[in-house]
């Protein structure tokens, strides 16, 4: 990242939270810099939301410091929180009030938010026309949009969104992506997005942090993650007798085999060697019905980093 040398907008050091005997977040430290979109990736129950809740002031960390825009969240609460905006879980509003009034009420709690700014963010998220309707009439996607409007209202230095694409239609997702990128790259906001969907992350984020079992396992740029994924290519070979094919390849022991099914098997092999591999099979008498490259191996990279398992609460 080009901005990594500047002051971090959000700095988390050694943050830990336990619930009873369960360690939800275990000594997590990372920095978030102005102008980047940081993805927080991890399976359900990995601790993403808990970390976000600690940053947003919902949960008090047991240990560690959280510094937002240079202010310690613990000792300088209001100044620190003035620089942050976001959505935790689903955006919840006062349902019987209009979106505009909801924003107006939220604006009162911040300094320097004008009426024009409210119109501006409503325009930005595409809700200008329905802003005077009660929020209870909104769809989930519209609620996400109004939540985003609220998060952006006071020009936060740090924008934190917890699974923001939930409930959004493709157009909404596209809009969200555009808004986030514009915020980060043009206005210099530090954006943090959590998700368990890799594809989304890939399109949105500059850097990705992977978390599982409350531990931050790795932080890398999206390109690094992609490269890691591309390196470990595998091919799916369709054959009438996969067992036989496996034996042939095992004898050779050069090509590791996995995911045996009734008519396919997956082979981990470099692009340069797939020709040799197929030839070997044909020579040894196995009938090849088809060869296909498995594209979605970003998941595998992810699984590899997280230790291969999806943990369930």
């Amino acid at each position: 990242m080009s901005d990594t040398k500047s002051e971090p907008a959000l700095s988390i050091t050694g943050t830990t939270k336990t619930f009873g005997s369960k360690v939800a977040v275990d000594h997590v430290s990372f920095d978030l810099y102005p102008g980047e979109v940081f993805g927080f990736l991890g399976p359900n129950g990995a601790g993403k939301t808990t970390i976000i809740k600690m940053i947003m002031g919902f949960v008090r960390p047991d240990e560690g410091t959280i510094i937002i825009n240079g202010y310690n969240r613990h000792t300088d609460y209001e100044k620190a929180m003035a620089s942050i905006g976001g959505i935790v879980e689903n955006p919840e509003m006062y349902n019987n009030l209009s979106a505009r009034l909801n924003l107006k009420m939220y604006a009162r709690l911040h300094d320097g938010v004008t009426k024009e700014r409210i119109d501006e963010v409503l325009e930005l998220v595409g809700l200008s026309e329905r802003a005077d309707e009660a929020v209870k009439k909104y769809s989930l996607g519209m609620k996400q949009r109004i939540g985003l409007a609220q998060a952006l209202l006071h020009h936060p230095k740090v924008l934190i969104l917890d699974e923001p694409t939930n409930g959004l239609d493709p157009a909404g997702i596209h809009l969200l992506r555009d808004i986030l990128k514009r915020c980060a790259h043009e206005e210099g906001v530090a954006v943090m997005v959590s998700s368990h969907l890799l594809g989304e992350m890939q399109l949105m984020c500059d850097r990705i942090g992977i978390i599982n079992h409350g531990k931050l396992l790795q932080i890398c740029t999206t390109e690094e993650l992609m490269q890691k994924a591309m390196k470990s290519n595998s091919y799916r070979i369709k054959t009438s007798d996969p067992k036989r094919a496996q034996d042939i390849l095992s004898e050779n022991s050069k090509y590791p085999v996995s995911n045996l099914s009734s008519d396919t098997l997956d082979v981990e092999v470099d692009e340069s060697e797939i020709n040799a591999c197929v030839r070997l099979l044909v020579e040894k008498g196995s009938d090849i019905l088809g060869v296909q490259k498995i594209e979605s191996s970003l998941e595998e990279a992810f699984l590899e980093i997280t230790g291969g398992g999806i943990n369930v609460e």
Partner: peptide
């Protein structure tokens, strides 16, 4: 859940 917007506020 509307308490959230109060908690997020400074």
């Amino acid at each position: 859940g509307s308490i959230k917007s109060l908690i997020i506020a400074p």
